[in-house]
Amino acid sequence: MATETMATGNEGGAGDNERLEAANGSGFFTLLRTELLLALRSRADIVNPLLFFVTVLAMMPLGIGPDPDMLARMAPGLIWVMALLATLLSQEALFRGDFEDGSLEQLSLQPQPLYFAVLAKVAVHWLVTGLPLAVLSPMLGMMLNLPSAGYLPLVISLLLGTASLSLIGAVGAALTVALRRPGLLLALIIMPLYVPVLIFGTGTVQAALDGYSYSAQLAVLAAILAAASALAPLAAAGAIRISLDH
């Protein structure tokens, strides 16, 4: 099996070999490391969602007016919706390259369950999109006049929430990977599933701004993340098998 992919050899050839070795070595962390290395090689994939996030947020004051009070009130919602869109848009490519060059099929044939491969890919996706988004969010909060009480909850809720978003979105990405132009379709099928994360994400920041404790909202976000990391890779693995069948 391994020799076959090596023989087919394409652009990502070196990466494929590494990945196969990692998969054969059956270590989840080896797979994670390889995926991360591969992701870090294509800089545009990391930078573009962040640029999108910042650019669209910069449009907001232009659209709704520069009134600082209004911006402050809308800031949690705006930042969260933009984070959601940035995650969603970057998700389309999650399995695409691997699907097209056949390495997804290779992964699905490994003795090790596909669950861990999906989990590794999603973890890497979060490391290169969700994590930078969360780190960048205080700056955007500042630009939107977010009161200082909101910064910490914003960052923590984004850290937890974007991980759930990546996991849930992976199901959609796996379902649409065999389609030619899945962009809008992916948004259509995944957006409704993002609702709870969005609600509790903004709820966290809002509670902090109103002067309440926000630990309950964070607990819910963490619970959603736990449930999503248990179930979403399973569903995504099933979806990958369906897409490979296509």
Binding site: P196, V220, I224, I242
Partner: peptide
Amino acid sequence: SADKASALLALVGTVNIPIIYKSV
């Protein structure tokens, strides 16, 4: 493929409906 994919999506939606309702 359409059958299986939409069945899976419907199932994922079913798991989510109670959570969506509660959060809304």
